[in-house]
Simulated scan of single mutants.
Amino acid sequence: MRLIYGRIEDGSVTAHIQNHYNRAFDRIRIGEKLYKVERARNLRHKQTFVLTEVQE
């Protein structure tokens, strides 16, 4: 993980989606929790995000 994403903070969440998402956004909601994107990486057929939780 460190080789691909660099330093990852404790409590971070990694999310993968099957396609690339090109529209602008500032938060991702998973269940009842809100996250901000620390890093995004486009792979060939999917997109990966490293997320940290934010307080509302």
Results as ranks from 00 to 15, higher is better:
Met1Asp: 14
Met1Ile: 15
Arg2His: 13
Arg2Gly: 15
Arg2Gln: 14
Arg2Met: 08
Leu3Trp: 09
Ile4Arg: 15
Ile4Thr: 15
Ile4Leu: 13
Tyr5Cys: 03
Tyr5Pro: 05
Gly6Phe: 08
Gly6Leu: 14
Arg7Gly: 03
Arg7Thr: 14
Arg7Tyr: 09
Arg7Lys: 13
Arg7Asp: 06
Arg7Cys: 04
Ile8Val: 15
Ile8Gln: 04
Glu9Phe: 02
Asp10Ser: 13
Asp10Tyr: 05
Ser12Cys: 15
Ser12Ala: 15
Val13Phe: 06
Val13Gln: 06
Thr14Asn: 01
Thr14Ala: 10
Thr14His: 04
Ala15Gln: 05
Ala15Thr: 03
Ile17His: 02
Ile17Cys: 05
Gln18Val: 01
Gln18Asp: 12
Asn19Asp: 13
Asn19Val: 13
Asn19Tyr: 09
Asn19Cys: 06
Asn19Ile: 13
Asn22Arg: 08
Asn22Leu: 10
Arg23Ile: 13
Ala24Gly: 00
Ala24Val: 13
Ala24Glu: 09
Phe25Thr: 08
Asp26Met: 08
Asp26Cys: 06
Asp26Lys: 10
Arg27Ala: 09
Arg27Lys: 13
Ile28Phe: 00
Arg29Cys: 10
Arg29Leu: 11
Arg29Tyr: 03
Arg29Ser: 12
Ile30Asn: 03
Gly31Ser: 07
Gly31Thr: 05
Gly31Ile: 09
Gly31Met: 05
Glu32Ser: 11
Lys33Tyr: 04
Lys33His: 07
Leu34Ser: 09
Leu34Ile: 13
Leu34Tyr: 12
Tyr35Gly: 00
Tyr35Val: 02
Tyr35Cys: 02
Lys36Gly: 02
Lys36Thr: 14
Lys36Cys: 07
Val37Ala: 00
Glu38Met: 13
Glu38Ser: 08
Arg39Glu: 10
Ala40Trp: 03
Ala40Arg: 14
Asn42Tyr: 09
Asn42Leu: 14
Leu43Phe: 11
Leu43Gly: 06
Leu43Asn: 05
Leu43Met: 08
Arg44Ala: 06
Arg44Asn: 02
Arg44Thr: 02
His45Gln: 07
His45Phe: 11
Lys46Pro: 00
Lys46Tyr: 09
Lys46Gly: 10
Gln47His: 03
Gln47Ile: 04
Thr48Cys: 11
Thr48Ala: 08
Phe49Pro: 01
Phe49Lys: 02
Phe49Met: 02
Phe49Val: 04
Phe49Gln: 00
Val50Trp: 00
Val50Lys: 04
Val50Leu: 06
Leu51Asp: 08
Thr52Trp: 00
Glu53Pro: 10
Glu53Lys: 12
Glu53Met: 11
Val54Tyr: 04
Gln55Ser: 15
Gln55Cys: 01
Gln55Met: 13
Glu56Gln: 14
